[in-house]
Write a protein that binds this DNA or RNA. Structure first.
Length: 497
RNA sequence: GGGCCGUUAGCUCAGUUCGGUAGAGCAGUUGACUUUUAAUCAAUUGGUCACCGGUUCAAAUCCGGUACGGCCCA
């Protein structure tokens, strides 16, 4: 049953042959002193005359990506984390024995090469090898050199191969790392403290979403992977830390799509004595400064659409966004029955007693969300969908909250925090009623959190920014799976086993 | 959840309309070749056509189902 392909069997025969020649297949004594890029940066512009004056030897290592064989000499292409460099392996130079060992190398092997530098007659900087060695034998063959690995499913399931074959993938994750560093620096420069709060919660709170459930044996209790760190970060505000942030994973037991992964990375932060309006300004500053660093411009292109990140960004209330992008009239958004009727015309499923605020948000998502292409802060969310947000001073049916949309995708969610414990208890009670009515996403009553609020939380504003979606924007990636190294896929049953 | 499309050699893909011995390029193997870069030239190996079932003298191809993936919609 364990039929190996002929390719693999041939490789194993080669490995045996190498071992018979006394070659160690996985040695660990190589000293590497240079990278492809460092060598090319320093010497790429020199001509052969300059290069012959250089006594220095260079030792590099990397994956053998191509071999062009000429009998008693060969050109090889070696790839390390920064790029590729050509090597020239001549039998006269490396010696007869080393050369016959080299002839048993395969594309895909990890190799070591050392030597001086020359320019070939086609002008390519080349390591003129005086030594070449095997560092790790590859048993499996790499994909084809020209087309590489293009099958999307194979790329996600075999990310190592994807990273070897597709240089753009590596770029995306270098950019991702830079984006996170820039955000971390931005926050720390503003005196925010980076913290880590629990990933396992006794109760899934801080967002409206379905959780993953797990179980702790010794404590004999159910735990939930967090859907948001919000309630813990706000406890730290109660504790007087005043400015905190956390960059970490959230887990939501929901659908998978080009913009949803079950686990995703969020930067969430809380600032005492600030309002959601302060956070609008801060969000603009943060994202434009990251964009300037990463892309060098605020005029960016994403999936063929030009996006103008120049400040200030558009602001619309939820209701304004609906009126702008539909034929709804203002009176429809003031009356539950009219709103329900309008929603049903749009094809939305609405209960007869559905609260007006929920209907408004459903209409917003249907008619406006996808059309918010240029950066837009949507404000004034209904209280029914904002159980943790402060009521707006003028209108108790709405809250001091915004969501940021770019390219029709939610990138951030922020609000002035509800810090009145009694109001918070009432909001949780409202949510409980929704839950009893069948809304599995509704928030639960969290007495422990309310008791924290009862110690007094300063007026505070907080925000969560979706890091994966931000990285998608800055790397022009069409799918969230392109910016997550190991995105979740359905288990593939191998029926051959 | 719904619709459409895809799954054939290690990789990239033809072949499916209209059923009749499973193909190419690259990779691999053998030979030639000391400045090539998708090296070249000659020869050559390699397949559970995703899986299960049905129709048929005969199925990669037609029909039904399943799995996985992609795109669009909700």
């Amino acid at each position: 049953m364990d039929e190996k392909s002929e390719l693999l069997r041939k490789r194993e025969e080669k490995m045996k042959a190498l071992q018979d020649m006394g070659v160690e297949l996985y040695p660990n004594d190589a000293k590497v002193t240079a990278t492809t890029k460092s060598v090319i940066d320093r010497f790429g512009d020199m001509d052969n005359e300059d290069l012959t004056g250089i006594e220095e030897k260079f030792t590099l290592a990397g994956r053998l990506m191509a071999v062009r064989n000429f009998g008693k000499a060969a050109f090889v292409s070696i790839q390390d984390r920064e790029g590729r460099i050509q090597g020239y392996i001549a039998r006269d130079k490396v010696g007869k024995d080393a050369y016959s060992i080299f002839k048993k190398f395969d594309v895909g092997d990890i190799v070591f090469i050392s030597g001086g530098l020359v320019k070939t007659k086609t002008g390519e900087l080349t390591v003129d090898a005086d030594n070449v060695r095997l560092l790790s034998k590859a048993i499996r063959p790499l994909p084809e050199k020209w087309h590489g690995l293009t099958d999307v499913e194979a790329r996600y399931r075999q990310r190592p191969v994807d990273l070897i074959m597709n240089p753009g993938v590596k770029e995306v994750f270098y950019t991702r790392s830079r984006v996170i560093k820039l955000i971390r620096d931005f926050m720390q420069d503003r005196d925010f403290l980076e913290v880590e709060t629990p990933m396992m919660h006794p109760m899934a709170g801080g967002a409206v979403a379905r959780p993953f459930k797990t179980y702790h044996n010794t404590l004999d209790m159910d735990l939930y992977l967090r859907i948001a760190p919000e309630l813990y970060l706000k406890r730290l505000i109660v504790g007087g830390l005043d400015r905190v942030f956390e960059i970490n994973r959230n887990f939501r037991n929901e659908g998978v799509s080009t913009s949803h992964n079950p686990e995703f990375t969020m930067m969430e932060f809380y600032q005492a004595y600030a309002t959601y309006e302060d956070l609008i300004v801060m969000t603009e500053e943060m994202i434009t400064s990251v964009a300037t660093e990463i892309l060098g411009s605020l005029q960016i292109e994403y999936q063929g659409i030009k996006l103008d990140l120049a400040r200030p960004w558009q602001r619309l209330t939820v209701k304004e966004a609906i009126l702008k992008h539909s034929d709804a009239t203002p009176d429809i958004l003031e009356d539950q029955a009219k709103a329900a009727k309008y929603a049903r015309v749009l094809g939305l499923a609405v209960e007869d007693d559905e609260p007006l605020g929920k209907i408004i948000v459903a209409i917003f998502e249907e008619v406006a969300e996808a059309r918010l292409i240029q950066p837009t802060f949507v404000t004034s969310y209904p209280i029914e969908v904002s159980p943790l947000s402060r009521k707006s001073a003028g209108d108790g049916g709405f809250t001091d909250r915004f969501e940021l949309y770019i390219y029709g995708r939610e990138l951030a969610n922020a609000f002035s925090e509800l810090n009145d414990p009694e109001d918070q208890r009432n909001r949780f009670a409202m949510q409980l009623k929704e839950r009893e009515a069948g809304d599995k996403e509704a928030h639960e009553m969290d007495e422990d959190y309310i008791s924290a609020l009862e110690y007094g939380m300063p007026p505070t504003a907080g925000e969560g920014i979706g890091i994966d979606r931000l990285v998608m924007l800055f790397t022009n990636s069409p799918s969230i799976r392109d910016v997550i190294l190991f995105p979740h896929m359905r288990a593939k049953r191998d029926v051959r086993l």
